[in-house]
């Protein structure tokens, strides 16, 4: 495993992703999602909205890192806020 050169931040990152997937699965079993149409142009399920949120988060982070001098934590906060908005109203 040493060739994978793990670091603490990336380990936390992947654990968070895995936890999210596990959480979504459990949530799905407890109460199955219903496809609905929010402010996004297509009707989505919970999983779709999570995916869109994560993809947006990735690009928000890239934008902040590459083209501004803002802190990466700001990007994280903005992404989380956007994710919540998407999950609730998207």
């Amino acid at each position: 495993m040493s060739w994978m050169v793990w670091t603490v931040p990336t380990a936390i990152f992947f654990s968070a992703i895995a936890a999210m997937l596990a959480g979504m699965t459990v949530w799905e079993i407890v109460s199955p999602t219903i496809e609905r149409k929010g402010f996004l142009p297509i009707s989505t399920t919970r999983g779709d909205r999570l995916f869109v949120g994560l993809l947006c988060a990735a690009f928000i982070h890239l934008g902040v890192i590459g083209y501004t001098s803002l802190s990466i934590w700001l990007a994280l906060a903005a992404s989380l806020a956007w994710l919540v908005v998407l999950m609730r109203w998207g």
């Binding site: 040493s2 060739w3 994978m4 050169v5 793990w6 670091t7 931040p9 990336t10 992947f14 990466i72």
Partner: peptide, 23 residues
């Protein structure tokens, strides 16, 4: 893919020489 992500935040010089570089 995980390995690529790990590489991307470090400066890997050799088997035991690597530094965390963040973003």
């Amino acid at each position: 893919l995980m390995t690529v992500v790990n590489y991307s935040v470090q400066d890997v010089l050799g088997a035991n020489a690597r530094f965390f570089t963040g973003t």
